[in-house]
Each structure stands twice: as C-alpha cells, then as structure tokens.
C-alpha cells in the first residue's frame, strides 16, 4: 500500500526558511503570495493490503521519527496499491 506523510511546522512556530522563500517569491514579482510555510513529504510502501493497517504503521513511523511533535504536525494519506 502506497502512503504519503506530510510533515508541517505547527501553527505559531516561526519558520525562518518559509519566510526567506516568501521574500524570494516577492523579489520575483509574486507579490500576492504570503504566509509561506515549508514542510516535508515522505512517500513509502507498506507491505499490507489493508488501508487501515497501512495508516496505522505510517502514523507510528511519523510519531517515532518522521515528525518532531514538539514543533511539527503530520498528516497521513493512504494512496492505495
């Protein structure tokens, strides 16, 4: 089962990298873009035919390693087989 985990900084946690990207976008003339936040995406296979089991294992991976829950939230999508 293919899974995607998106890791983002929690709301309220400062994101200096997102800020720098935003400044660069403005320099390129994209003045309407704001509130840029930078995150990470992980995609992997889970060896199971069950979507629930794939989600459970992906959540376990996110909590154990992929995300630092002090500063980050995560979101799991099961993409199917």
């Amino acid at each position: 089962m293919q899974v995607r985990v998106t890791v983002r900084l929690k709301p309220g946690v400062l994101d200096p990298q997102g800020k720098a990207v935003e400044t660069a976008l403005h320099t390129l003339g994209m003045a309407d873009l704001s509130d840029v936040r930078q995150g990470k995406i992980f995609e992997f296979e889970v060896a199971t035919a069950s979507a629930d089991e794939a989600r459970r294992q992906a959540e376990q991976a996110a909590q154990a390693l992929l995300a630092n829950l002090v500063i980050e939230d995560f979101h799991v999508e099961v993409l199917g087989s």
Binding site: V13, L14, P16, Q17, I71
Partner: peptide, 8 residues
C-alpha cells in the same frame, strides 16, 4: 527543539 537560526 533547536530550529534553523533566525537569520538562516
């Protein structure tokens, strides 16, 4: 947590 420096 230790995050990226303010001024990068």
């Amino acid at each position: 947590a230790l995050m990226r420096n303010r001024d990068l």
